[in-house]
Nucleic acid binder design. Structure first.
Lengths: 150, 150
DNA sequence: CCTTGACTTCAAGCTTACTTGAACTTGTAG
DNA sequence: CTACAAGTTCAAGTAAGCTTGAAGTCAAGG
């Protein structure tokens, strides 16, 4: 098994389409050497970077943010244990926030049965922007603000 | 306070931009009457539909899916208690799935410290597509599949 | 040699959810 | 009456993340 992979091979192993890999390379997220023919040859550590990209996307990062994170990686190849430890802390927070938001949405589902509404007039779940207008417009309670503070 | 709201008033009360409201109307998600002048006049129940739309978006539905749900609503105005009860069950499942995915991602963060890798070669978190290839390509474990079953 | 499949680049297209701009009309305060 | 804010339509633009198509090159098998 060669040390350098073709784009097709890389696509198969990573589960990411070849066109996407070219796109990532264009964005500078991954790099390739070229065979004499001009065909891309990916070194094996690129697979780790791809895994990292896929993972980070699922955490909710944009490709731009991912590019920044990849730029910080020691040796610029694939995340080391130290890198991973740092990211672990940052991303855990992010994941927890998103989970908390989803929990709030779930509460909204059951509480709105309780109050029978989802009415912008009467329900505090539906209507913190109109009633408890502090904090700007929008149904802020679901989305992340603390319930009415005014 | 009039029973019919202008688009600006509706935007302020709902926290949704006027341009977005026009867009929703265009998609058939909300409806308006027209004043003699041609200006939109939104009936108050529209605020509930808007709240519904915002909520559903945060649950993760696309506007198209939301349109389908709105189409099922009794009286075609705003969700009743019965509607809400049905949705509650459906969406809870959806929310739970997403939360479960996020929990898996979190586990990945700490487990990969343990194994020190995120290597597509050796880590089962990073590499079920290459190692435990059943189930198609991609880092399936994080994303939703059960860990290696082959 | 010929075919087929994999690869190349570059530009353009796609989807979602809107926003922005142009050009124009209405409504309201003074 | 005059401003000026707020409304109208329609077309086009934006952002992210890719995919697709065109036109051509390269590699492997028979």
């Amino acid at each position: 098994m060669a040390d350098l992979l073709t784009i097709g091979e890389t696509a198969r192993r990573s589960g990411v389409a070849a066109s996407a890999l070219r796109y990532y390379e264009q964005l500078g997220l991954i790099a390739s050497e070229r065979a004499g023919s001009g065909h891309r040859r990916f070194a094996r550590p690129v697979l780790r970077r791809i895994a990292f990209i896929v993972y980070a996307q699922h955490v909710g990062l944009t490709l731009e943010e991912i590019g920044v994170e990849l730029g910080k990686l020691a040796g610029n190849q694939a995340p080391t244990r130290r890198d991973w430890s740092r990211l672990s802390k940052q991303w855990s927070v992010r994941i927890d926030e998103r989970i908390a938001e989803l929990e709030r949405l779930k509460i909204g589902l059951t509480e709105c049965i309780g109050c029978g509404c989802l009415s912008l007039d009467r329900c505090r779940l539906a209507n913190p922007g109109d009633r408890a207008a502090a904090g700007g417009p929008g149904p802020r309670y679901w989305i992340g603000d603390a319930p009415a503070r005014g």
